[in-house]
Nucleic acid binder design. Sequence first.
RNA 1: GGGCGAUUAGCUCAGUGGUAGAGCACUUCGUUGACAUCGAAGGGGUCACAAGUUCGAACCUUGUAUCGCCCA
Length: 1032
Amino acid sequence: MAMEKAFNAAEAEGRLFEAWEKAGCFKAGANAKPEASTYCIMIPPPNVTGVLHMGHAFNNTLQDILIRWKRMQGFDTLWQPGTDHAGIATQMVVERELAKNQQPSRAELGREKFLEKVWAWKEQSGGTIINQLKRLGSSCDFDRTAFTMAGAAGDTRTGHENSPNFHDAVIKVFVEMYNKGLIYRGKRLVNWDPHFETAISDLEVENIEVAGHMWHFKYPLAGGATYTYVEKDEDGNVTLEEVRDYISIATTRPETMLGDGAVAVHPDDARYAPIVGKLVEIPIVPKEHRRLIPIITDEYPDMNFGSGAVKITGAHDFNDYQVAKRGGIPMYRLMDTKGAMRADGAPYGEEAAKAQAHAKGAEFTEGEIDAINLVPEHLRGLDRFEARKAVVDEITSEGLAVMQTLTKTVKDDEGNETEVSEVVPMVENKPIMQPFGDRSKVVIEPMLTDQWFVDAEKVVGPALDAVKDGTVKILPESGEKTYYHWLENIEPWCISRQLWWGHQIPVWFGPQYDENRECIDMLGEMFCAANFEEAKTQAAQKYSEKFGYTVEVVEQLVPDQSVAERKEPMPTAQGIEGKGIVRIALSRDPDVLDTWFSSGLWPIGTLGWPEWGEDTSKYFPTSTLITGQDILFFWVARMMMMQLAVVDEIPFDTVYLHGLVRDAKGKKMSKSTGNVVDPLEIIDEYGADALRFTNAAMASLGGVLKLDMKRIEGYRNFVTKLWQASSYGDSQIDAFSAERGAEPPAATLPLNRWIIGEIAKVREEVDAAFDAFRFNDAANGLYAFFWNTFCARYLEFTKPIFFSEDQAAKDETQATYAWAIDQALILMHPIMPFVTEEIWNVTEGRGFETGEASKMLAHAPWPTYTAADLVDAEAEAEMSWVIAVIDNVRSARAEVNVPAGAKVPMVVTQIDAQGQEYWDRNEALIKRFARIDSLTAVDEAPKGCIAIAAPGASFGLPLAEIIDVAKEKARLEKNLGKLAKELGGLRGRLKNPKFAASAPPEVVAEARENLAAREEEEAKISEALARISEIA
RNA sequence: GGGCGAUUAGCUCAGUGGUAGAGCACUUCGUUGACAUCGAAGGGGUCACAAGUUCGAACCUUGUAUCGCCCA
């Protein structure tokens, strides 16, 4: 059967993938040997809204390589696919979709209807990325495709995915962690996205450097107090001394001044020492209501930055929050959920008075503090950026901006230049790091809100220990250091999101009463349970115990502000129908969980937990996790913490971390830069195998991933090379008609015995590389073997055999060639599944006709032969000698410009018995590839002969009349130069007595052998040089 | 500012103690019966710098310089 001229990837890939799936090649346990160990990889679930990008392509290539390799080895494999519900991203996509189709908005629809829309969208479009994974050749068990929201309220399908219990698992874990005190609720400063109106995780914040301004304002000392401000240079000389009645503050966010709680200076800062503890006035809002705040000391301010004094706004800045917590400084929330200045509450005067009372020590509850609105009337409701302008203008017009004198040159109408000085407010233009929501692209606002937190410090221990004691390995090793560093400094993890799409927090709030049945807080009691029934039972019990009534609990869906403010007293039993029953309403927390909370359970949740099924016992803990180092903290570490906290087991034993895929120059791929490479376009143009091979070749441990089109093209050429070599075996030498199996054929010819040994060496190399996650070593080893050894040598060397009449040699070589190609296909299949499977099937004796998995390369047994089994040292020595002679002749010819096409005679002046034997057996081969037409034995090389040195032999090309003697002389001298350098090194080492004494014996022996060989070569070339010099 | 890492051929990168490699690019030659998505031959590196450990350092240690990434 004649093969096509080249592999048609575009045509073949879909067809092959379908055949694999139809045959069930990728099902869990497919091709497993009896009693096989398991090998399981959990895919890092891409967002259900996602499309395949280069990062996915890279990441999944590596996973697929390992899974295919283990599957061929007969492990019981499972590669678990699935998608992440991706809270914000999905909610945004659906909202946008609604807007595009002029449908009612999220707010108009309400929660339930909106969620119906999201589920419908998920059904329709959620499979995109899964199908794209198939184009890459990913051999996941797609029948088990899981989803992190599967089983949650509204899921339109059940049982279709292997994670019907995923929601149950998430809820169970929340309840358990709550009951163990690992999850708590509290008011903390969090990253707030004013567009989506939710708290978000650190991962969802992008810090971007933008052009910003730094304003300098004066905070007057209370009561007109003054002090002497002294500045000194490094040597202690006074450079400035003046009496001031203010402290100068620098800020990039003037609008937050309204919420200042203090001004902080460094404890070592002598400039401000006289006024520490004094009060200053916040220079904004109507004079009569201005608040006074203290000057405090804290390590946080940098004495050398700005004025060295900073304002502390605990509710709107993360650094200030820490300072405020340390110093007991009050924090006042200034903005609403949309990032506008608050418009609620009492007139400013009243609110400011409350704040002042609070600052003086009056008792306030957390809720009462939060209710204080310190935004003056004229700024209420303004967007935060408009408010900033207004604040700056007000302060400046009052003369409290720090001023500076600018001198500039102006030209009048006649062109005369004059210098004009003006005094302007001091505003520095400087780049500042600003946080943006990665989805919303709006500036993130630190916001003090009630949120749920995982007390990470309490669960971090086992996760740290598992890596420290080597139970879990992180590659590259530097990842372990990063892991330790983060876990050892872990912060509470904010897990609540003010979204609708996600796992709703299983906590119901109920009213809290004091002993007198007066309501303290309508939402003050919390009942955490897997479902409402259990929460009801808990609540009924609690209230009954407290008040001795039978309590009937009813749910009220939305715990809005009006509920919180009602403060109805505890109803008495007589109050309701005189039956001794009271009704109390519970309302469920409307918030949902951080997506990372649920994906933290991905390994165990997809395996059926909380039920311990057969799959759970079999595949959990899983084996290898391959993921980007950017989510080491957000996902990997959390999986470790959560699995260990919940079932006391590690989730996987090895983590392989890789970097970001960048463009050829090392730049991040981004839409705005326009350097995004679409993996699907690459697959269309070059084929999935070329992309996969490139990915494997790039994947050095800890390496930077720069995707160069030239490289992809090169590996596409490699695919062609493989195809051509197979085609040669097919049409030129009819190799595939030979009977062949897994065992190498019984070969007698050194050529065949040699290539069999070379295959065994590559097999060991590839296995060692995969074992160590050194994908690049495997790829490079296969590439070099196949191109340089198999094609450039072995394939060429089979030609003289097939042009001869030696039928036995032909038969043996056909069988060996076919076996060698088979082995190459097997070894390359994990990296390049498509082209290898296609060749496997189009070559004679195989095919997809039956559609059976056992006939497919994907299930071919992985070889276990070793170099020790198959390498024939004699055959290897012989072939190296042959190759050395050919290469030396070719090199010499090219350098002295013997026409490449010309066949020339050769003489031999000296040859040992071994060499003679090699020559006799390989004469046709050497003559063909060195382009020699005859060999004559002579006593002495003719004058002007080109010298060819080979181990144990001296040849010459008697071409004095056609070659350039000067060039030959130069060639020999160059060779001698190279040898001299090598010899110098070797002799130097061997002469040093300490070398022989200290170096391992095999190193010394190798150096000796090397020296002998180099000396022999040097002698031959020197002799040739002397001879050629006679005629020059 | 803290943490992690990098610096090797023109370019992109391998190489964790035995004297430096690959791909691309470059030069010269070549339609020699698998392949021009190719073949043959070749040029090109005091492995950022300095000191140290060692018989021996691109590799280990320390310092310096430059550049990345993450966190503040």
